[in-house]
Amino acid sequence: MIAPVYGLVLLLVGIVAGAVGALSGLGGGVVIVPVLTLIFGVPIEYAAGTSLLATIATSSGAGSAYIRDKLTNIKIGMSLEIATTLGAIIGALLAAIVYASNFPELIFILFGIVLLFSAIPSAKSLFRKGFRSSKPDFTTGLFQLHGSYYDKAARARITYNGVRWWLGEMVMLFAGIVSGLLGIGSGALKVIGMDWGMRLPIKVSTATSDFMIGVTAAAGSAVYLALGYVQIVSASPVIIGVLGGAFLGAIIMNRMRGNRIRLFFIMVIGLLALEMIFRGFGVL
C-alpha cells in the first residue's frame, strides 16, 4: 500500500519529469533522480532504477508522438543503437566492478565534468542562424542518413543530410556506457551526438534521441531489476506521471523555436552536470 497523498506527489514529480524529458530528449531522469533522493530520501540506486523504467515510458510515449509528426529519423536512430546498446552492456559490467570497489564517487565527478564540457558545442550553436543542411559525405549515402520534416514554428519544410556517421556512433558508444554505468537514459549525450556530431536539426536530434533512449534504458533496466533496485509500488505513480508529461511535452515541442529548445537543453545539461558532481562529493 502507498499513502494517497505521497502517491499523488510522486505522480506530479513524474508529470514534470516527463515534460522536461520529452522537451529536451533526456528522458526525465535528471528530474526524477535528484527529487527522489533529495526530497524523498530514496537511496540512489532505487532512484536510478525508477528513473530507468520511467525513461522507457517517456521514450515510448514521446517517441510515438514524434514519429507521427515525422520528426524522428528511424534509420538514423536504429543505426546508432548498435553503439548505444553495446555501450550499455559495457557500462553495466563496469558498474558491477565500480560498485564492488570503494570509489564510485570519482566516476560521478568525472561524468559531471564531461557533461559540462559536452554542453559547450550546443551553447556555441545557439548563435548559429537557422538550420543549414550539410553537404552529404560518404556515410550519408551509405547509411541513408537524409530526411525532411515540416517545422510548425518556422512554417517550412526542412530537408537535411546526416553526416559523420562514425562520429555519431562514437558519441553513442560513450552515451551507452554512461547509461549502463549510471542508470540514466543519457539522452543529453545522444542529442549532442546527432546535433553537433552528425549535424542534424535540433528537433530531429531531440525526437530521435527520445526514440532511442527506450532501447538503451531497457538494456540497463534489466540489471537494476535483477539486482532488486526497483521499488515498484512507489515507482508506479512516477512512471504513470512521466507518460502523461511526455505526451504533453511532445505537443509543446514542435511549436517551439529551435533555439529555445537548445537553451532549455543546455540548462538541463548544466543541472545534470552539477547534480553528478554534488553527488560525487557526497552532497546529494
Partner: peptide, 14 residues
Amino acid sequence: NLLIAIFVVPVLMR
C-alpha cells in the same frame, strides 16, 4: 545486443 543486455549481462553481473 538488447537480448544480451537483458538476459546475459544480469547473470554476468551477479
